[in-house]
């Protein structure tokens, strides 16, 4: 594996290897929560934060606990537990010390546990054999890319409310078509940087 500059990975994770638009991760909440710009921005921030933190935890756990004991096959279970535990912990800390943010993000926090983007980033960084800094850059970049995509989609959907849409396409159908168009636009970024 060629040593990649963490900065390159960071940019690539936002534009060319966007979590939603080229890896299809985090689609469930992407379609469900993207109705308003404010809420999707809140969710995006929460996802970015959890991604950054869990990538550190999972990296350390994987390389310093699982690998020395030859327990790599347990990684799915360990990762999902550490993500769930971390989300729970954050919820409790935030409720106590920063209640404003807690109530703003409230409902989204528990949802993040089952967001495939989080587990996906942890798995990708293991499969692609990233170093610690690379993993961190990848996680933060993915989070920002995810936020950008969901906020953009929310903006488009707010406009879309006034448009007439064929009956069967209403709701999820048209959302997917819009996402497809966004994905096409993002193909334009490919070639700037390359990872994988």
């Amino acid at each position: 594996m060629i040593e990649l500059n963490p900065m390159v990975i960071f940019i690539a994770a936002i534009f060319t290897n966007n979590m939603i638009l080229s890896n299809f991760l985090g689609m469930c909440s992407f379609v469900a929560v993207s109705k308003e710009i404010n809420t999707s921005l809140g969710l995006g921030q929460a996802v970015t934060f959890v991604l950054a933190a869990t990538s550190i935890i999972n990296y350390l756990v994987y390389h310093y606990i699982l690998v020395p004991y030859n327990l790599e096959f347990l990684r799915f279970i360990i990762f999902i537990i550490s993500i769930a535990a971390f989300v729970q912990l954050i919820e409790m800390i935030m409720e106590k010390y920063i209640p404003n943010l807690y109530y703003a993000l409230g409902i989204f926090l528990p949802l993040i546990t089952v967001n495939c983007a989080i587990l996906g980033v942890s798995l990708f960084m293991i499969i692609r054999e990233y170093s610690f800094l690379q993993s961190f850059a990848f996680a933060v970049g993915s989070g920002i890319g995810w936020t950008m995509a969901i906020v953009a989609l929310a903006g488009i959907r707010q406009r879309l409310k006034r448009a007439t849409v064929p009956k069967g396409l209403e709701g999820p159908g048209i959302t997917l078509i819009v996402t497809g168009l966004m994905a096409m636009a993002f193909i334009g970024f490919s070639g700037i940087v390359q990872i994988q």
Binding site: G168, G173, I187
Partner: peptide, 21 residues
């Protein structure tokens, strides 16, 4: 490439929703 997956799924949803409606 990724976009076609979105378009095709949207088409599947369109067709099935129409039939079911």
């Amino acid at each position: 490439m990724p976009p076609s997956a979105f378009f095709l799924l949207a088409i599947v949803i369109w067709i099935t929703h129409n039939i079911q409606d």
